[in-house]
Write a protein that binds this DNA or RNA. Structure first.
Lengths: 212, 212
DNA sequence: CGTGCGATGTATCGGCCCGATACATCGCGG
DNA sequence: CCGCGATGTATCGGGCCGATACATCGCACG
């Protein structure tokens, strides 16, 4: 999952580890608290070994050749490669079982702007199915095994059930919106593209303004 | 976390691994999908090595000494020890940072019936604090960095924010209910105790029936 | 002027937990 | 009688986390 998220973020611009972590936290804040360095750095090394990303020198070397007497430990900037972009496309499109658990779905969703509509629909429906199953499990427990459990445990199940129902409704809305056509996708953002990246796509969820 | 959950369940009755997993899934279904055996068995071994639990023979050995020609691989039943009960009490009462993350809080809450009221209150308030912080983080992102993020990412944050607000309200209710006195606790369930264990404690949340 | 402290920044280590996999037994229906 | 799904125990590789260590930079406070 981290692999996918890093590849996705580096596609927007090169970054060093610390920055990456902050962006990760901002983008996935709704899903997970904060990525640990104990996960981040090993993953970066893995990605580098696979050739999906490369290190880029921090100082552009325009200056004189002062070869670092003090062995300055400067920041390490990572940059995605062409193979890395292919890898990202592969990961974002394929949907295994882990695509639908909380974290996996969150990461995929966070990069929906770079996902084609058919895949978005597939993922939203897969997630809905999974949540519906969890919901049924909770209803079963609350129905059949209620007398075996104490009041606090039951209250926990009720709260979980409520969250499931709410998420299913949310997904229904997103699915309907997705089917109805208006689906924004960030253009591939090719490395050479010039202009501003300020496209503000029409949002999912109910539209706040209507077309006349 | 698994350690705490296992100790808690074995306090109700001895169980073998498979059964333990089912009970765990029933009790924590609102929190996590299903405990993996790859977690369960190593944890059981750990607990055994520490002396918190012991293996109990499946067949009570009342029968003749037929010494298992076929080396019958029978089920392995685990039983909590006195030290294990102490350990559980220690774990359930102490509150580190991990007590307030999603999983940790869920497990603690699921065993609130075996937790004293002061600890329950402390944990509920700690959890509320943590969720409030997450909520503020999300509000910050939605306020300050909104234009840097695409519509899908923003929608994710909104959904997360909504979930936070909802959970805070839920916690407020539980806290108020807890403060108001009526707080059920399962009696220690001492190993020697005789009677039925059918105490049905008054539930958290709004009471559905009122006393005249 | 110096000094310490919080933010920035890179990195490792032990440990928990997961998914995949393997293997054995039991009961039941075809 | 045979297969098949439920029951049941167990290991292995790998991902991710929390704790920890260490270095630099800017700046506020004495």
């Amino acid at each position: 999952m981290l692999e996918l998220a890093i590849l996705g973020l580096l596609q927007e611009s090169p970054m060093h580890g610390y920055e990456l972590r902050k962006e990760l936290t901002a983008k996935l804040g709704a899903i997970r608290a904060a990525i640990s360095y104990g996960s981040l750095y090993p993953t970066l090394r893995r990605l580098q070994a696979a050739g999906w990303i490369v290190e880029a020198a921090e100082t552009p070397a325009t200056a004189e050749e002062v070869p670092a007497l003090t062995s300055r430990r400067g920041r390490v900037v990572y940059k995605i490669t062409a193979e890395g972009k292919e890898r990202f496309a592969e990961l974002i499109a394929q949907a295994g079982p882990e695509t639908y658990d909380d974290t996996g779905f969150g990461v995929h969703f966070a990069f929906f702007a770079r996902t084609d509509q058919a895949t978005r629909l597939r993922i939203l429906e897969g997630r809905r199915r999974k949540i519906e199953e969890r919901r049924e499990g909770l209803r079963d427990v609350l129905g059949r095994a209620a007398e075996r459990l104490d009041a606090y445990t039951l209250e926990l199940q009720r709260h979980g059930l409520d969250a499931c129902e709410r998420e299913v409704r949310w997904l229904e809305e997103l699915i309907a919106n997705e089917r109805s056509g208006r689906a924004p996708t960030v253009p591939p953002t090719g490395s050479a593209g010039g202009g501003r990246e300020d496209n503000s796509p029409s949002p999912p969820g109910e539209s706040r303004e209507e077309r006349p």
